[in-house]
Nucleic acid binder design. Sequence first.
DNA 1: GCCGTACTACGATGGCTATCGTACAAGGCA
DNA 2: TGCCTTGTACGATAGCCATCGTAGTACGGC
Lengths: 132, 132
Amino acid sequence: MNSPKARRKGAAVTTPAVSSRDLPHPETAQIRLESVLHALSDPMRLRIVRELAADGDELSCSYFDLPVTKSTTTHHFRVLRESGVIRQVYRGTAKMNGLRRDDLDGLFPGLLDALLDAADRQAAQVRDLGDG
Amino acid sequence: MNSPKARRKGAAVTTPAVSSRDLPHPETAQIRLESVLHALSDPMRLRIVRELAADGDELSCSYFDLPVTKSTTTHHFRVLRESGVIRQVYRGTAKMNGLRRDDLDGLFPGLLDALLDAADRQAAQVRDLGDG
DNA sequence: GCCGTACTACGATGGCTATCGTACAAGGCA
DNA sequence: TGCCTTGTACGATAGCCATCGTAGTACGGC
């Protein structure tokens, strides 16, 4: 609810908008552990982060095939961005998403890897139970 | 809302109550990563877990001096217990709380240490900012 | 048996949030 | 220019949740 629509309403944009469509990200020092944990405590968002980590670099929003509507998907990506977990940037019509791995590793060394490993282990366990 | 009051209402207790006051804990295999993260995403609960980890073993609920009422404290301890982060047991009138470190380390190796380290780093950073 | 301490259960409340549908904007392409 | 794809904003809704106050239970000591 910040830059894109605010401009149309004639409101003054405080942050210097380099591009016409840039998104607010928290600075590295402003990332809060509680917010990161809250962001990752949702199954849908944890799934997004796992796919981002698995695929490596940047993925568009449309890459993900989540069992929710596009509105909800947008919401989840915003939560991840505002908590500092991912970085979002427009590339044409697509919106590319990338893990803020360097920032997180600098703030909380080992945390992201431990979280991803934990998620992998839980997924493997659930898979085994499903197989019987 | 399970064992303590249910007995008075004459309902059948499914779980074999060894003591008159025992508390429902999730089994180790039932602990879900999302629930753990959600439990730790609350500042009050993260603080409780940090104190438990710092002090080592078991601490009573009254040991903690939290800026909330006792009702709310009870609520937070229950969330931590039901998510599998802590184990609670009555000892006389006191209720002792202990981290389920072995269970969590077995499920998610390195996760708890990474989380505690991250919380320590953030606390140190906030402290530095406060000192100016 | 009675009281104090420790903690809980219950109900209420206000705020957050995950979800949806609809309408709309921005960029690429024919 | 007009259309399609991609993604957003907005409003609504239902459920969860952190918090409180009050009343009550359980245990230990007097």
